[in-house]
Design a protein around this nucleic acid. Sequence first.
DNA 1: GTGAAAGCGCTAACAC
DNA 2: GTGTTAGCGCTTTCAC
Lengths: 338, 338
Amino acid sequence: MGATIKDVAREAGLSVATVSRVLNASANVSDEAAERVNAAIAKLDYSPNYLGRNLRCRRTNVILVIMPTSEHSFYMKIVAGIQKYAQPRGFDIICASSNSTSEIEIRQMNMLFNRTVDGVIMLGTQYDAATLNALAAEYNIALCCEGVNGANVLTVVIDDEAAAFDATGALVKLGHKKIAFVGANDAVSSVQRTNGYKRALGYYGIPIRSEYMYSGSFEYEHGAVALRKFMSLDDPPTAVLCVSDLLAISVINEAHKMDLTVGKDISVMGFDNISMCEMMIPSVSTVEQPCERLGELVVRRLIANITEETERDNAKYTVEHKVILRESTSPPTDKNEQ
Amino acid sequence: MGATIKDVAREAGLSVATVSRVLNASANVSDEAAERVNAAIAKLDYSPNYLGRNLRCRRTNVILVIMPTSEHSFYMKIVAGIQKYAQPRGFDIICASSNSTSEIEIRQMNMLFNRTVDGVIMLGTQYDAATLNALAAEYNIALCCEGVNGANVLTVVIDDEAAAFDATGALVKLGHKKIAFVGANDAVSSVQRTNGYKRALGYYGIPIRSEYMYSGSFEYEHGAVALRKFMSLDDPPTAVLCVSDLLAISVINEAHKMDLTVGKDISVMGFDNISMCEMMIPSVSTVEQPCERLGELVVRRLIANITEETERDNAKYTVEHKVILRESTSPPTDKNEQ
DNA sequence: GTGAAAGCGCTAACAC
DNA sequence: GTGTTAGCGCTTTCAC
């Protein structure tokens, strides 16, 4: 087990240099030599040892994707987009999940520091802007889906502020005036969505009510908690916009427990357009993030940074979002509108 | 950027051997030397190049998990179990998804052949038994969740036959006699579940009706197709057992479209216990696979195969399943029982 | 068109 | 307790 390039050379009666040339399809090798090498490779069932190759070339052609959690299909769709672009360009993609933990994230990042991978794409990070900037000076890193304020690092995101503005607007256009918001404290995307929500209310002349704003985290339970809080108000909202689909689903399940019919008694809207949105009863209105485009764009720029000699591109790119209305949203009824 | 062990040695005024000793916490290095080395490491922001180390040691301490699709949270839960055990033992886990495609799977397997990883765990594979046996002779591979008949390869699964027997039994005990089955053609697990279903019917003295058996694939749509077929029968079933939760959810959604109330007009049961089961309305009855135990056990045995000098363990291990009843199942009503 | 040889960064055997 | 050195498997100059 484990033939080396030397074994192949011996078998073929040629030098390792020639074998290497065949392996790398480089010029200047006769047809006859190539044939003998290939025969030897087949005979010995030889597969080049990439540790040797990568050490020598100082390149692994592997990109690591770090995600907060691997249990959300949303992230997996991004990865699929990344893979689709990277694979044909000769880059392998590997994934790891940090559980949104700084400690684990750092351990994953070691693969970058110890040269196991050529670059890292982070779908959310615990690093602060200063650290990211320092890292970006030395390594090929990129942020996707979730930016960091002040980080001068290759970033690909949707315009979260505008997306939330549009989502809120869609609810207003359905006739809602009492629109609540379920956010997640720390994430930049959530903060910007909060801003978009507020701006939309202002734009449509609807007062902002602090009792309609809940801020927790992306944890599932928070949707239910938020809804209970909203519904205990004297004047409860007729619609709830959440910063993630999972939170929206939590709201929907809690509404069901409270005997509220979602899409009738109350409208609920999420964010991301995970596949569950279509599977739920009622199906869930949401803001779609174009996962494939996000993934493709970020990895395309990252690969350019890795392979090209030019200055590293640390720009911020934005891709289009899309509001999708399904069964979980409808005009407010007279009853709850009064 | 990129200090090497040589740089550290020079900076510390010691030899590379001593630096290496400190790095690997090996004995026989004075406190003073260790201190100087650590100071130099900190000063130079040195991180060992694993390509060099791995090449030298012929070990990467990385295990690859290949899954059919990364969009099912079920697989991710297995990976979490794998990770939980492997990480503290010094093994990194990386993931790749094959889209159930032989071509992609082979490309992923190259990471094994080219020594990028020390072993591979396959959560489903396109390889046949003969190929797997040949691979297992040379490399450290393992199957998890989904075995292959005749493959003499380290395998960790639940007893799919018994699990389906129990699931069917649970429906019988609720009072159902007209129990349909939604299977997936090719997968070994599905075949065995089909056997368990049939054996249970026999055991409880219920005749097997071919019109109650649908065989498609794990693709979501098949649940809906199956249900439409079942409900178009003169004597439709009162319960449907599916070989995956996703198929069950598809059945549930289709039932809803047909104005059937799941958990009342018809009972539906899935397989796996993905997190969606609890989020659905109604919540979905299912057979739980102990993901963490599956993952932990398979990686534990695989790591033993990698690290221990002894004969490779190519045994087959079985872990316990558990039937979980939720809202999607109930006794048949008089109406549909007549 | 082909081969000899240096060297990528590291560990470990051996010498002291 | 520390240093010297060979060599892991590969690519790539440089010579011919």
